[in-house]
Design a protein around this nucleic acid. Structure first.
Length: 501
RNA sequence: GGCAGCGUGGCCGAGGGGCUAGGCGGGGGCCUGCAAAGCCCUUGACGGCGGUUCGAAUCCGCCCGCUGCCUCCA
């Protein structure tokens, strides 16, 4: 890192303490991050995209600072109970019955769909992507530990966490700010006859009804693990308790993350997580997007444009930019026009990057105020990223740099107003912040375009000759026909550029 | 009902007592065979009513409107 660029210490808003805290890993330079992954029984939607992109940027940022990050994100393939207790049916099983498939076939299919979507969004795959069904023995073991410690009880082959007992020894609701008495008054009327001693108790192990397909042997019954168990088990197994950062959507704070804390504290007498981070939700027309409301847009629909609310197919990076232009703790009200505007913004950033790569900084007539601005914007970028991952402000700095790059490019290929030293910093940092840290990929990097490149160069050269001879009819025909197949030609002071639409 | 939060210019979205956010769009100009892109200039905002203050979009109070969690969910 060059001397002129300073990266301030990272502060993160910790849901647990409700304030921004300086991030200090337990065992530097190692950082453990766990993010709640998807339940794989349907297509991933915009909400999945947001959580994944937000924590991908966190991971990239910490990595760029020299931390060695282990990033764990699970696949929930057991399915959780639907509705309450005894009426419950495993989600994946339900879907399997509907489609006449093996439950594991469903899980496998949607895991693949999810991972494909993540790849398109340029989300780096987790270092470990553990599956709940691969950790049944560990989950059974944890249930036993909690039973041994006296914080759970067995009823008819099911095991429940004893929340009132826990609340006697430890504080209840540390994450969500919820109080046990209030919870009781609300939930009492909602629930019918059941095995739980207290409405706030939750299942650690459920005995499976005879029709249930996904089930495993345990000391208590043939059944399946409770909703919150897998995360605790996989935290402990792959990151150790306690570990640094646990992330997920805000809707998971209660009860999911609250239960995770109780399980870990009950089992090991230690709060499991140093920093709890929660991204806010995505709304559509001001309404929460959710599975139960059925108003969600899948990630793939954004890319194909096949949804009544979408006017066209959008570039995956447009979605990424849209997400990063909002701070992660604010709501994003999703719209087609917002996505379209993000797409234009994305193109601007990427065009500036391409342009910057062709520039040569020779100095000679250096403009120190311009150079100062460049350094200032780069430092601001890091300052805002370190301030609770404020990607909205950080990306604004990149737009300011974009503007400067465009001005420099107007000088021609050889730039005199910026010294070679500052020019190199600009080149390195602009690319590093945009591509490596924010994960905004220049277009078509995945595509092998080398031959297409060569062919277009031939056409561009022919057109150039036609223009030289003032044969504009031919020149325009070449450009128009290329446009018809989605290739746009653009004449610039330093030659003709092309771009795929 | 309990808890948490939000209301910013045409749209999206940062910020948060005096200091240009940014993106998209609109207007004017430069460049150009034309087009596109780019550049320069520009427009324009802090839900309502009170209060604190030399000064409030920013702090406090009340009111209005909206959202999330309390049921699986990112």
């Amino acid at each position: 890192m060059e001397a002129k660029i300073q990266i301030p210490p990272v502060t993160l808003y910790n849901t647990r303490t409700r304030e921004k805290e300086e991030f200090k890993p337990l065992k530097p330079p190692y950082v453990g991050i766990y993010v709640c992954g998807p339940t794989v029984y349907s297509d991933p939607h915009l909400g999945h995209a947001r959580a994944a992109v937000v924590f991908d940027v966190l991971r990239r940022y910490l990595t760029s600072m020299g931390y060695k990050v282990r990033f764990v994100s699970n696949i929930t393939d057991v399915g959780h109970l639907e509705g309450d207790a005894d009426e419950g049916e495993d989600k994946i099983q339900k879907r399997a019955r509907l489609e006449q498939l093996e439950p594991m076939e469903i899980a496998q299919h949607y895991t693949r769909v999810y991972n494909n979507a993540m790849a398109k969004l340029n989300v780096i795959p987790p270092n470990i992507q553990p599956h709940a069904t691969c950790h049944i023995p560990e989950q059974i073991e944890l249930v036993q530990t909690i039973l041994d410690k006296g914080f759970a009880y067995v009823v008819n082959g099911s095991v429940y966490f004893d929340v009132p007992k826990y609340a006697q020894k430890y504080e209840y609701g540390v994450l969500s700010g919820r109080r046990l008495e209030e919870l009781e008054s609300v939930t009492r009327e909602l629930r019918g006859v059941e095995e739980k001693k207290h409405p706030a108790d939750f299942a650690l192990w459920k005995k499976a009804p005879p029709t249930h397909i996904m089930k495993w042997k345990s000391p208590w019954s043939v059944g399946f693990p409770g909703w919150h168990l897998e995360c605790t088990v996989m935290n402990a197994k792959y990151l150790g308790i306690p570990f640094d950062i646990h992330g997920g959507g805000m809707d998971l704070i209660f009860p999911h993350h609250e239960c995770e804390i109780m399980q870990a504290v009950a089992a090991w007498d230690t709060e499991p997580v140093r920093y709890w981070m929660h991204n806010n939700l995505i709304t559509i027309d001001g309404q929460k997007m959710s599975k139960s409301l059925g108003n969600f847009i899948t990630i793939e629909q954004v890319f194909t444009g096949e949804h009544e609310r979408l006017s066209k197919a959008h570039h995956p990076m447009a979605l990424r930019v849209l997400i990063l232009q909002t701070h992660y703790r604010s709501v994003i009200d999703f719209s087609d026009s917002g996505l379209a505007s993000a797409e234009k913004a994305y193109k601007r950033l990427v065009q500036a990057l391409k342009k910057l790569e062709t520039l040569e900084f020779i100095g000679g007539k250096t403009d120190s105020s311009k150079e100062d601005k460049i350094i200032k914007h780069i430092n601001n970028f890091y300052e805002f990223m370190s301030d609770d991952l404020n990607t909205a402000r950080a990306i604004a700095q990149l737009f300011d740099l974009t503007s400067i790059i465009n001005q420099l490019a107007n000088e021609g290929k050889s730039v005199q107003t910026v010294s070679p030293e500052i020019g190199e910093i600009l080149k390195r940092q602009y690319s590093h912040t945009l591509v490596d840290i924010l994960g905004i990929l220049p277009e078509d990097e995945h595509l092998d375009t080398s031959r297409l490149h060569a062919v277009l160069q031939i056409l561009i050269n022919l057109r150039q000759e036609a223009r030289k001879h003032k044969n504009f009819q031919l020149a325009d025909r070449i450009r128009d026909q290329l446009r018809e197949i989605g290739i746009i030609l653009r004449d610039t002071p330093y030659g003709t550029e092309w771009e795929l639409e």
